[in-house]
Design a protein around this nucleic acid. Sequence first.
DNA 1: AATATAGTGTGTATTTTTTACACTAAGTAA
DNA 2: TTACTTAGTGTAAAAAATACACACTATATT
Lengths: 229, 229
Amino acid sequence: MEQILPHLDSVFSIDCVLFGFDGKELKILLIERNEEPFKDWWALPGNIVGPDESLDQSASRILYELTGLRGIFMEQYYAFGDPHRHPQGRVITLAYYALIRLGGDKELRPISTYAKRANWLPITDLPKLAFDHQKIYDKGLEKIKRRIKHQPIAFELLPEKFTLTQLQHVYELVLGKKLDKRNFRKKIVSFGVLKELDEKQKGVSYRAATLYRFDKRKYAKLFGKEISF
Amino acid sequence: MEQILPHLDSVFSIDCVLFGFDGKELKILLIERNEEPFKDWWALPGNIVGPDESLDQSASRILYELTGLRGIFMEQYYAFGDPHRHPQGRVITLAYYALIRLGGDKELRPISTYAKRANWLPITDLPKLAFDHQKIYDKGLEKIKRRIKHQPIAFELLPEKFTLTQLQHVYELVLGKKLDKRNFRKKIVSFGVLKELDEKQKGVSYRAATLYRFDKRKYAKLFGKEISF
DNA sequence: AATATAGTGTGTATTTTTTACACTAAGTAA
DNA sequence: TTACTTAGTGTAAAAAATACACACTATATT
């Protein structure tokens, strides 16, 4: 985030690529800037790292301030530091991504002051982004594509209880390709990190699917072993 | 690198984990500090990012200043920013790793002023490191372990012409486990990124092995396809 | 010249994993 | 009761991974 520029030689900030899933589409959170440079442009939410916080703490704080969310899986993935990436001075930024389940119960808190508004926009139809934020986003998407093949991050995008079809949908969206239903189920179940519940989907006008839950305990036991899509 | 501390709110530096291979062992480059804090301790080489250089440029410059080497594959892998990682102030550091072939033709340039001396030390027997440098190193090793399975970085550790046995040796050292000779050869050859030369190893007192070269052209064509160990 | 030594280089059978592919079952809505 | 929509399941074929042992060749030694 670059809207505040104290007169320093260099500024260190964090920008977040927040991937959200509403059950249908993958979206990211963008803000519409209210200040120069790039006034009226869409940009990734971010902020400056405080003097007494660690990087992860800072990222959590920023996420909280922008969305009201806590306890979300976040991870740094790349530092961007081109000397000219910000027109007004040297700003090195560390990019984090987070995966968030949208809709349903909690509504996201409105975004703070420095932006006109914030919006979840589908990644299939993004506007031009301020600064080098397109690059930051691109690298973030690339990252989660690789990551979702080896780590159980897909669950972060889903409600606690979900169906296998929903899970497959997430994988297909992130990876950008169709997967075979039977093979997907065979594989994901074989990892042994899902707990089948005694519950069924509700409110659908067709046969209700069985609900599953991600089993952190079992996953912890697997640690070290690679899972792979 | 933290030996210079201008009176700023925060400093942004780069630290390098330089992995070297001399044909026998994996080593990393360490310097012995000549200043407080951590005077006389071993530390990773690093330096402060200049105002007009990109992060990658800065890393290349630092590598060059410390070793005289150019054109080495380097990559950033993690930012460390605990507010107390440096006893004298806030220093956020970005870690890079590089892979370097040791010995043979070029001798490394002596290290610059701020260290008593620099040395390549085998990773199997490292001293206590200054600051959080052990953590930085650990994460770097982890990184190249994962990376070597999917990217052709092993070649950076070897001379231009190498034998398959040498290549296997590098994989075994990095991954920390023995590999089967026949299976290794089958697999690595099947990737199609090696060019078999009409040349044999020289100066050995046993049957000389065929030399190979990494074929960047062929590798470029593969791009997008995953290779995997 | 014969022999010892040390690393090179190769093939196959078995197991495991991946892929391709289509129908019946269950629940809801009309 | 029928039509509709998604859930849920198995198998055969292909590909990839693994386990495994011996003959070859260049040099050094006697």
